[in-house]
């Protein structure tokens, strides 16, 4: 792969939300929601972004979508029309409007993300209308096509969202995201609000569409087992920082960070004799306002030593494309999903 295949490149991305207090709204502290995250997504591939809730993965997604301005860092996006990459972190609103059609989002909550007062036709057609892509009969035809593509019945297009189940609503949400044939889709936990039986359907639908349209996904999830099957690369985040970043195969074979290992050991297993080896993390997730010194994971880490509490481990390159932020990633022999017989 050459460099021109890179669709999205995130470099040292930071987002610190100020906490204001008092009458004068003085800034007393910062929530370091995202604190130095870097990764890249190539055209047509899927990057899985995992971590516990509150680790900043949604904030990363929202910054890429332009909902928040990053405090620091850059987000380079290469438009599919061959123009040079643009930095979304400092882009002006006019240019952003032009890029909108290429970056779309699937939301987590299918009940909050569809306007209850619009019909399915209006919801799916909205991106086409506001970007002046289609109207009139052409619009109808395109919406019809999209509805069929996501496996819904076209005769229900004039219904309102309340008439659909969670899974169906998520299909509508997908159809809306796909309406402009984007190059990148940020999927923010698209299955976590759904029944387990429906989750697989939605994931499969997303993958089918990826095959058809050749788009790239930034798939945000807290479930390693779920994204294992279709992610090319995986970023593991903890309290706003990247703990491990590697191709999916490498990471599941042999994780190089204790946090990744802990996450993997909690994926349901097909080998009941290994259940006893599940790592139950002590304590709470670190406070992003006041993260612990040294490695942010050290208070909960099974392998922590003195150095971990004092020195922040850098994100070190262990092999080409495999990075981990742990002082002992070379020494430790951690078990991955493959050895644990993860069920999914």
């Amino acid at each position: 792969m050459t460099d021109s295949d890179v669709l999205l490149e995130v470099r040292n991305l930071k987002k610190h939300f100020p906490i204001r207090k008092g009458v004068l709204k003085k800034v007393v502290a910062h929530v370091k929601a995202v604190d130095g995250v870097s990764f890249s997504v190539r055209k047509g591939e899927t990057l899985g972004l995992v971590g516990e809730s509150g680790c900043g993965k949604t904030t990363v997604g929202r910054m890429i979508m332009g909902a928040y301005r990053p405090t620091e860092g850059s987000i380079w996006f290469s438009p599919p029309n061959g123009k040079p990459p643009l930095d979304l972190a400092s882009i002006d609103p006019g240019d952003m409007r032009e890029l909108r059609p290429h970056i779309q989002m699937i939301f987590q909550d299918p009940f909050a993300s569809l306007n209850p007062r619009m019909t399915i036709r209006e919801i799916i057609g909205e991106p086409l209308i506001v970007n002046k892509v289609a109207r009139g009969e052409e619009l109808d035809r395109r919406v019809h096509e999209l509805v069929e593509m996501v496996g819904l019945q076209p005769q229900h297009m004039s219904r309102y969202p309340h008439a659909f189940s969670g899974g169906q609503r998520q299909r509508i949400s997908i159809a809306r995201a796909m309406s402009l044939y984007p190059a990148l889709v940020v999927a923010d936990e698209p299955t976590s609000a759904l029944d387990v039986s429906v989750q697989a359907q939605i994931v499969n639908l997303a993958l089918d569409i990826q095959d058809k349209l050749g788009l790239a996904y930034l798939f945000i999830s807290h479930d390693l087992g779920l994204i294992r099957h279709f992610s090319n690369k995986i970023v593991v985040m903890y309290v706003g920082r990247v703990m491990e970043y590697a191709p999916a195969q490498n990471i599941f074979e042999r994780p190089r960070h204790p946090y990744t290992e802990a996450l993997m050991s909690n994926v349901p297993t097909t080998r009941p004799e290994l259940i006893g080896r599940r790592i139950v993390l002590r304590g709470e997730t670190a406070d992003p306002i006041n993260p612990p010194p040294g490695c942010p994971f050290h208070p909960r880490c099974l392998y922590a030593e003195e150095v971990c509490a004092n020195v922040v481990p850098p994100l070190a390159e262990l092999s080409p494309e495999h990075q981990a932020a742990c002082h002992f990633s070379r020494e430790l022999n951690l078990t991955g999903c493959d050895a644990l017989g993860c069920a999914v």
């Binding site: 909902a67 909108r100 939301f107 987590q108 209850p116 991106p127 809306r176």
Partner: peptide, 14 residues
């Protein structure tokens, strides 16, 4: 702050 409003913004609505 509703997601459907955010969705409209992401779709490019003014």
């Amino acid at each position: 702050e509703e997601e459907f409003v955010l969705a409209a913004r992401f779709a490019g609505a003014g």
